[in-house]
């Protein structure tokens, strides 16, 4: 554990809490892509199966349980409790276009051809693109609520901080995981356009609206 990873994890935690608070306080999930949230639930469910096979630390297990359970709660809130506020008309990204290629790639490019390892790899690849339905939805509506942009900024920062963590671990621990690093870089790059808008608009007190 180093400082970059700790801040990265906290940023990830903050993102999830922000999203749940936004939905709970406004009793609405308007502007949030249910498809991205389904993908995140799938990411956690496939990655953290090692909860049952390996114990790393209390921190590790607690965080894994938190991520799995909150992602399921988020999907429940969107598709059941606050379904009436879900903006399905704008959430039209086709999930099979992500899940199928990512599944194929996980079979072909992995560290070890075993069920748990393939699921872990699938989860890493899927996470790198899971935000696309959300970004697609925002590009269709042309805007995002400020709280939603805070959520996305925290969520994007988490993987960017993990990159710093991997640089640190490479130099000081000799640790290097090519799959995680490449996928993490792809994931972070996808947020760059959003980061630019966030810094130039939201941090200056303006609402996030996309250039027409």
């Amino acid at each position: 554990m180093n400082i970059f990873r700790l801040i990265g994890d906290m940023s990830h935690l903050l993102a999830i809490v922000l999203l749940l608070l936004k939905m709970w306080k406004t009793r609405s999930c308007a502007g949030i892509s249910g498809k991205s949230q389904i993908l995140f639930a799938l990411v956690f469910a496939t990655r953290y199966l090692d909860l049952f096979t390996a114990f790393i630390s209390a921190y590790n297990s607690t965080m894994k349980l938190f991520f799995i359970s909150t992602s399921l709660v988020t999907v429940y809130l969107m598709y059941f409790k606050f379904r009436a506020t879900y903006d399905a008309n704008h959430d039209t990204f086709r999930l099979e276009f992500l899940v199928v290629p990512v599944g194929g790639l996980a079979f072909l490019v992995n560290h070890n051809f075993s069920p748990l390892e393939i699921l872990w790899t699938f989860s890493i690849y899927l996470e790198s693109v899971a935000i696309l339905p959300q970004l697609f939805m925002m590009s269709k509506t042309g805007e995002a609520e400020t709280i939603t942009s805070h959520y996305l900024f925290a969520l994007g920062s988490y993987r960017a901080l993990y990159i710093l963590n991997w640089v640190f671990r490479y130099y000081f621990e000799g640790f290097f995981d090519l799959i995680a690093v490449v996928a993490g870089c792809v994931q972070t790059i996808l947020y760059c356009d959003f980061f630019y808008l966030y810094i130039t608009k939201v941090l200056k007190g303006k609402k996030l609206s996309l250039p027409a």
């Binding site: 990830h12 790393i56 872990w120 640790f175 995981d177 799959i179």
Partner: peptide
Amino acid sequence: RGDKDSKDEL
């Protein structure tokens, strides 16, 4: 990849 190595990450 050692099992413990990357599975300590979230």
